[in-house]
Design a protein around this nucleic acid. Structure first.
Lengths: 242, 242
DNA sequence: CGCACAGTTGAGAGCGATCAATTCGGGTGG
DNA sequence: CCACCCGAATTGATCGCTCTCAACTGTGCG
């Protein structure tokens, strides 16, 4: 009997490499020139969590970051427990969990919005592999810096937009991420409830609902429940760019 | 005649160390265990720029970060040139310029709001000193991570606040930074014009003016032109924490 | 079948934007 | 030193977007 492949628990480097090659984890691995063999030591096998399950919460020690393989997560910050803030939606290809770096404990909680498969990457090991090598430390810092720039500039601009423009921006962001993963960018399902969208965008549920209805009528897209179809990307870009 | 101090151009290591020891640059240097001698190689002499001068703009290659010694700067992002966004105010002790890390070019421009003294720190050298040493690379990443967390959570919460609460938060932020530098935290001068405050907070100049007038009447502080005095910190914290 | 929750739709109120007029202040030149 | 000017700041009146409160509809699940 051959001792390779097809076994359910086949956790060899090549298997993991295949699992990772299509996800945005490559945005970390690739620029850092990590040889495939090290991926074996960095990442664990794919893991599945279910709707409502927490991947980590604000009491979880930070030791890993996570790549979303399928499904969707939301992150919530509850610095004031009375006013939880949805801080992000994470779709296939996204990396979640860097929020724990500062204090060595996650500050957000991450909850599955539906059945979700994730890859766990040990940050300690990633750090050793990437940062001890002078030629790869800069790319890693740049990855962090991206988040700084994206968040600061993007969110400050966001706060000046009206409800329609905020909704448009979110839809474009989701659309772009699906596209990057090889899915349709004009037909997809919104994995999160209206209340989460509202919280994330700083609106009320009622306003989100009204905006979706209005944009639907005006042919920006068709929406039925959570299903978006015929998203008119150019048209909605014009709307978003105020 | 003694050959120490009091000379205008005394640019020795000890002078620079003295110049730096009171500034928030220590938040980089200290946790990284940089020996004082290396500061000589990292930082240059204090430099003065005048109101309206640009420290860097969006075309400046990234090679240094800057510590504000006195005065004040604003950073502006003009990704859509028609809608410039004030992205930050930098007071004594603040570090400005990390925005250039991602693309190796600054994305913001930094303009002096008044006569301002700054220290320039070579990022290349800082990076070599700090990151080649495994015991100091984590603190540096944490510094970056702080910015991520601060910005994301803070700005998302910010966008849900009303005009008074936004103004309160900004005043508290400024007050705290002055305090950290040993200045009064209840009496200080706002270095930026109302228009910059408005742009930064996502409000109009008129609203900023009205809010300041209202908070003045309600004894949160006294304001005369740019001069804030008798800032009632506890009271204004309650307002900010919605 | 009924319950709980998610989502939609409507009416009214309030906050901040907009438009407009006025005041204030710093700088310049006579 | 004063008159003048121009931009910054204040103040007022009105409009509109979004929130709030409320009722209703739809949906998944026991």
């Amino acid at each position: 009997m051959k001792s390779m492949s097809t076994k359910p628990n086949d956790n060899t480097a090549s298997t993991i490499f295949n699992a990772c090659k299509n996800c945005r984890l490559t945005s970390i691995c690739t620029p850092l020139n990590l040889p495939p063999i090290t991926l074996d030591e960095l990442s664990t096998q794919e893991r599945v969590i279910h709707k409502g399950d927490e991947l980590f919460n604000s009491k979880t020690p930070f030791s890993s970051i996570f790549a979303v393989r399928s499904g969707a997560l939301k992150t919530i910050l509850s610095s004031q427990p009375s006013q939880p803030q949805v801080t992000g939606f994470y779709l296939p290809g996204d990396i979640v969990g860097l929020d724990g770096l500062e204090t060595n404990t996650h500050t957000n909680s991450a909850t599955a919005l539906e059945t979700t498969a994730i890859c766990e990457i040990s940050f300690d090991k990633l750090e050793k592999f990437s940062l001890n090598d002078p030629t790869t430390q800069r790319p890693f810092l740049q990855l962090m810096s991206q988040e700084i720039n994206n968040n600061q500039a993007l969110f400050m601009q966001q706060s000046k937009k009206n409800a329609e423009q905020k909704m448009a921006s979110l839809l474009l962001s989701i659309s772009a991420r699906f596209k990057k993963q090889g899915y349709s960018d004009e037909s997809f399902s919104l994995p999160m409830p209206r209340a989460d969208i509202a919280n994330y965008l700083g609106l009320t549920v009622e306003t989100v609902s009204r905006v979706l209805t209005k944009l639907n009528k005006e042919q920006y897209f068709n929406i039925d429940k959570k299903q978006i179809s015929q998203l008119h990307i150019k048209k909605i870009q014009q709307l978003a760019e105020s």
